[in-house]
Design a protein around this nucleic acid. Structure first.
Lengths: 202, 202
DNA sequence: ATAATGAATGAATATATTTTCATTATAAAA
DNA sequence: TTTTATAATGAAAATATATTCATTCATTAT
């Protein structure tokens, strides 16, 4: 008998991870269509053939990443629905985002996938699911802002507009972080939540 | 003799306009690689062959749009360098952006082109020029914020961070506007400039 | 009517990208 | 050293997309 099950398993996991890292980086930076399979394989340091041993098509690989993104987003939506104080929820969420930005986690890349999936024709069911989560995220953000306004933690104003602005600013930060790389400077919590959190509360 | 010079000229201009509208819409929405020539021609209501009578390659068409974007951006950079009051410059600029967003002008589309061109390998000289303008825009925004802080029109804080945040929020609004379409609600000037403009000044 | 001019078409060709698959490499056990 | 199970390779086939070009169409002056 050759290698053990565990050894093979470990090998497969290792190459899968290499593929993931390369793919998310390239899909985020160039978009699904512009990121070629050759590109991804080269970045992952493997052959094209091996890629196809792990994923039936390029689309399947994309879908797997999309479903990770959907999971992450779902967790956030769930937290937004909890009974915690709106101001604390927003603060924690924003801090985590800014932290991930600073630590070069893959958060920016995942956000770019999210965005791409919103304008794809013939979306896979994974993409459809992610899009549902994006929608839920928007709705829960609006709800949370309204709640915070009721508690007088947040500034008054049109909650929908505020939610669009909040999510847009985060999305924009991800985008600029990706395109600028090193030069990017993560703004402070105060700057990012200033439009929302009342002055007494920060 | 057949048609007059002017008539031919008018015909060519008309189809060029059709190509422009279709191309900017599709390039912005799907990205350069994912927007196919067939797509663009169909959207413009013309044949593929006619497209190629007007542009030698798909890249040439993209470059022409990019150079328009660069022109627009250059005008903004120049205005930011004027002697006008920082608070007025920022207000005017932001109002124009928000206005364009409301009127479904092509502004959002142009911003997406800008972003794409920042992460293209082997950039054409048009793309390189646009990227230079993007860089200048960032620098002038930082300068303008510092100036406004000196005049006590703007809130204190790290000017670079504030500039990144400001540009990111605008970029993000464009992006979300494009993906959400009808549902999008343009935030007010107050929301968008709240992090920057001191309370006395609005 | 016909000729002349340039716009417009789309099937054919060239090119690029994705996908397959026959083959090779690797490590462990017999 | 041979066998075995599976990972890994990359050239070839299939597919998709960009580009070319011979042909048709539309309009106007003769």
């Amino acid at each position: 008998m050759p290698r053990t099950q565990e050894q093979y398993e470990a090998m497969r996991t290792a190459t899968r991870n290499k593929i993931h890292s390369a793919a998310i980086k390239l899909f985020a930076k160039k978009g699904f269509a512009a990121a070629s399979v050759k590109d991804i394989a080269e970045n992952a340091g493997i052959s094209i053939g091996l890629m196809y041993r792990h994923y039936k098509t390029k689309g399947d690989l994309f879908n797997e990443l999309i479903s990770y993104a959907a999971e992450g987003l779902e967790a956030i939506v769930t937290r937004f629905q909890s009974d915690e104080s709106p101001i604390e929820l927003i603060r924690q969420f924003t801090l985590e985002i800014l932290d991930d930005l600073n630590n070069d986690d893959e958060i920016a890349e995942f956000y770019m996938l999210m965005n791409q999936s919103l304008s794809m024709e013939e979306p896979s069911f994974q993409i459809q699911d992610l899009n549902k989560q994006s929608d839920a995220m928007l709705n829960q953000t609006i709800r949370l802002i309204e709640k915070g306004q009721k508690y007088n933690q947040f500034k008054q104003g049109n909650a929908s507009e505020m939610a669009f602005y909040f999510l847009a600013s985060i999305q924009g930060l991800m985008m600029i972080k990706l395109t600028m790389g090193e030069r990017f400077e993560t703004p402070s919590l105060k700057i990012v939540t200033g439009f929302l959190i009342r002055d007494g509360h920060d």
